[in-house]
Design a protein around this nucleic acid. Structure first.
Length: 860
DNA sequence: GTCTCCCGCCATGGC
DNA sequence: GCCATGGCGGGAGAC
């Protein structure tokens, strides 16, 4: 009845089926079993069609569910619908691409209905416009008309070029996280989203099957654009189309062209879509909320887009985490009510100075506490866990999650061979600016640092992975082991670093097992090779990586079960728009919302949380030598701080220009060249001239092929090797690079692509600056978690929503001198690991960046 | 003959 | 090794 009521089409169909059934019933099966089987066959085939199946499925749930989201069990659905699970997967994948459902747990989904469908479509449209899908369709149509496709070679070539120009990688964080050739890159979800995009950007909203298939194929390697691929794509498109038809979003018809009668689909779904800017506006409003309502506003913002927290919360949170969650919430409330809450801090503002002072005190307290905590427990994990609480207490600022994450732009311009010169020219960012974000509690601390108006943020990605390729070789340095690294000039090697490395008593070789090295090399050299490691590390192709995506991917990679973030695969796309910054900002808000939502979802799942952190502008002079820096601080690396001040001045204009040209949001998975957020990986240490960075990071330059893959841990590690930061059997990576490739590699692996830097929480240590008033950067480098010895596995961990205390050191300095109220999302994960894991899995080191652009590092 | 797309093999990855 | 996913293409019904 529900099905019939839900769809006239189904009703008619069922009527027909009913007639058939009646006819069949009228026949005596025993008399004509063959005929009965035939009928059964026919009925079965039709009745099992994906579209009808989807109809049945949709009839089970309301279009606009209440707050209580329905829990969908695949097994139950499959049983009730009398189909195989495989079919349900197809439906769920398409629905998930539209955020009508979200995966909450294994074998379980949460139903959202059409609540967010409008926003999702709006965003898809926005992304599609940004990526010029409409133009691509026009070009393909024109080629089809011109029969250019008959010449496969020429067509392929042209299409490949076109792809370079317009295509952004698959819209999906997780899919991005997968290797280039990973099957997830061809996920039905991604195809579904792009298919929908084609409708939304085309005018009239009609898409022929072949055009859609060709566009989708275009995203794959050109070589794959053969007939079989085309057929496969068409098959999948049929599957998707059937579901979309069930959703009343498209209708099928045929177009008659020169080539004959071709199947096509027209959009019959909602035409009036909520403007993306509205979404962004709603998102932007969130940070402006008062402290008292900050949390709720954040929650609301999170719900604005693809909210699924409620459902996930219901069934993914482990009971043991409830208490933790409550504590976190309490801490958050405290933080939110703190005077230093997400207030926008302006450089030079007396209030900010006061805030900085307070933060300094907090940092000192934090340090003491960390020291105290770390002594009894030498394991970094335990320290981090305990320190987390302290950190949360120290949280000075309430996160304004809704601030659009500006893209920090690192301009990798030069490659200095094996030893990359740490030059992070952040366009538009004042030299010497350093942001420290304390986050000593989590092993992995991805930090989103919004960039403002082309000001380059930075990224610190420090994380001690669970890598223990050779557990017995030596105890891994604990988080307390803090060493300093001095970045050298771009052109020169980093003697300090080498010396520091030499000073490191621990054998480098022991740090890296052959297998690990092999995998690292594989990741570094062949981005296209699928690997498990890459699953969490998005591929960078044409699109730009987004911090949130990175976070998602990384978090996901470390989570045993696949969290709901899968539904966010759409999100990355939003960010990867080569369009104007203004346009991106609206999108950014949406992304923020998405991130927040996902954050909440993760929180509910007790799997991961992102903590918004307010970055405080900090003048170089604010950081004094011998400053005690609490371990685990995220230091947004100001690219300019990494380059000489003179160079900065000389190239500042260019840098700014370059930065402005960047796309703020880039999905790590998408791998577009422009890097909004900088993820300072070891490669990032290879500083390049801003000018070069500008060229590389330009939107078009962003069309870097697969080699622009996301910074996987392997790549990170490998890069470190190349930088001489860690030992490496060989350096085939840089040596084999051609100039062009070098640039490409730099962009993905270096500052440009790194939207953020993950700082491994380390204990507070006095950091000596080369010169007073010069910025320093502490970087705790994480080991790739790829080669975890069997049995050890990844430590049990959970993510929790912990507002990251904003250290006085934490600062975001904009070039234009405008205060940057930065919001940083820091997922903090609580690790439940044994001491062994803790010791062996963490390998932090600190990189101290001086104004001289020199660095030296010690590895504990 | 082509269009549709069901079906299920089997690769992948987590546990 | 088991299980959950889901990519993929054969092949058969529909047209």
């Amino acid at each position: 009845m529900l099905i019939s009521a839900a769809s006239p089409e189904i009703r008619n169909r069922e009527k027909k089926l009913g007639m058939d059934t009646d006819e069949r019933d009228s026949l005596d099966p025993t008399q004509d079993s063959e005929n009965g089987e035939e009928l059964e066959k026919i009925i079965s085939r039709k009745d099992k069609s994906l579209g009808l199946l989807c109809h049945k499925f949709l009839a089970r749930y309301p279009d606009y569910p209440d707050s209580a989201l329905a829990d969908i069990c695949l097994d139950d659905v499959a049983t009730q619908l009398n189909v195989e699970r495989r079919r349900i997967y197809d439906i769920m994948n398409v629905l998930e691409s539209l955020h009508m459902v979200s995966r909450s747990a294994k074998n379980r989904y949460s139903w959202h209905g059409r609540t967010k469908l409008g926003e999702t479509l709006a965003i898809l449209k926005h992304v599609g416009e940004k990526h010029r899908y409409g133009q691509q369709m026009q070009q393909i149509r024109q080629r089809i008309r011109d029969r250019e496709f008959e010449n496969e070679a020429a067509a392929d070539m042209e299409f490949g070029e076109q792809k370079e120009l317009f295509f952004v990688e698959h819209p999906g964080v997780e899919f991005k996280a997968a290797s280039v050739n990973s099957r997830k890159d061809k996920s039905l979800r991604v195809m579904s989203q792009k298919f929908v995009m084609l409708f939304l950007v085309s005018n009239p909203r009609v898409v022929s099957l072949d055009v859609a298939a060709k566009i989708l194929i275009g995203e794959d390697h050109v070589a794959d654009q053969d007939k079989s691929k085309f057929k496969t794509k068409v098959r999948r498109l049929y599957d998707i189309a059937n579901v979309l038809r069930s959703l009343k979003l498209i209708e099928k018809f045929h177009v008659t062209e020169a080539g004959g009668r071709k199947p096509a689909f027209k959009w019959v779904g909602p035409v009036e879509l909520p403007p993306v800017k509205d979404l962004a506006k709603s998102s932007a409003e969130c940070p402006s909320k008062k402290k008292r309502v900050l949390e709720s506003s954040v929650e609301n913002c999170a719900k604005n887009l693809f909210s699924s927290s409620g459902a996930k919360r219901s069934f993914t949170r482990h009971p043991s985490l409830i208490k933790l969650s409550r504590n976190i919430q309490d801490d958050r409330r405290k933080i939110n009510s703190a005077p230093s809450s997400p207030a926008k801090c302006v450089l030079g503002d007396p209030e900010n100075m006061d805030f900085s002072s307070k933060m300094a005190q907090l940092a000192a307290i934090c340090k003491i506490k960390l020291d105290q905590e770390s002594r009894p427990k030498e394991t970094p994990e335990s320290t981090a866990t305990e320190g987390d609480t302290a950190t949360k207490r120290l949280q000075p600022t309430a996160p304004g999650p809704m601030e659009p994450p500006k893209v920090p732009l690192l301009t990798p311009t030069q490659e200095s061979g094996v030893h990359q010169t740490p030059r992070t020219p952040l366009a538009g960012q004042p030299a010497g600016s350093v942001t420290f974000i304390p986050a000593q509690c989590s092993r992995l601390i991805p930090v989103l640092i919004p960039q403002q108006q082309g000001n380059a943020p930075y990224a610190v990605y420090l994380h001690s992975s669970t890598l223990r390729s050779n557990p017995l070789s030596r105890p891994q340095p604990t988080s307390l082991a803090v060493r300093s690294m001095t970045f050298e000039d771009k052109t020169g090697q980093s003697p300090n670093a080498r010396s520091a490395s030499k000073s490191q008593p621990v054998s480098r070789e022991s740090d890296i097992s052959p297998l690990k090295l092999k995998r690292q090399r594989s990741d570094s050299t062949s981005e296209s090779s699928p690997s498990k490691t890459k699953k969490s590390e998005p591929n960078f192709k044409d699109s730009c990586p987004k911090l949130s995506e990175i976070l998602q991917a990384r978090l996901k990679a470390r989570c045993g079960s696949r969290p709901s973030p899968r539904a966010l695969h759409l999100d990355p796309e939003f960010i990867n728009t080569p369009g104007s910054t203004a346009g991106n900002q609206t999108l950014e808000h949406s992304l923020e919302n998405l991130l927040d939502r996902d954050d909440k979802s993760a929180n509910s799942d007790s799997e991961a949380d992102f903590t918004p952190v307010q970055a405080v502008p900090l003048t170089p002079g604010q950081i004094h030598s011998e400053t005690l820096v609490p371990a685990g601080y995220l230091i947004p690396i100001s690219q300019q701080s990494l380059i000489s001040y003179k160079e900065l001045q000389s190239s500042g204009e260019e840098s700014n220009k370059a930065s402005s040209s960047y796309n703020i949001y880039q999905t790590p998975t998408a791998g577009s060249t422009p890097a909004a957020a900088l993820e300072v990986t070891p490669t990032n240490l290879c500083m390049n001239k801003p000018s070069a960075a500008a060229s590389i990071s330009s939107p078009h330059a962003s069309q870097q092929p697969h080699r622009l893959n996301s910074p996987s841990p392997a790549i990170l590690n490998f890069t470190l090797q190349n930088l001489g930061l860690i030992s490496s059997p060989g350096n085939t990576f840089t040596s084999s690079q051609t100039p062009e490739r070098s640039g490409a590699l730099l962009s993905p692996l270096s500052l440009q692509q790194r939207n953020m830097v993950f700082i491994k929480p380390v204990s507070p240590v006095p950091v000596q600056q080369g010169l007073p008033g010069q910025p320093l950067t502490l970087i705790s480098v994480q080991q790739p978690l790829m080669t975890t010895p069997k049995g050890t596995g990844l430590p049990q961990h959970s993510f929790f929503h912990t507002p990251v205390p904003l250290s006085p050191l934490a600062a975001v300095v904009t070039t234009n001198g405008q205060p940057a109220a930065k919001t940083v999302f820091i997922p903090q994960r609580k690790l439940d690991v044994s001491a062994e894991d803790s010791l062996s899995s963490i390998w932090p080191f600190v990189i101290t960046v001086s104004h001289k652009n020199s660095c030296h590092a010690d590895f504990g």
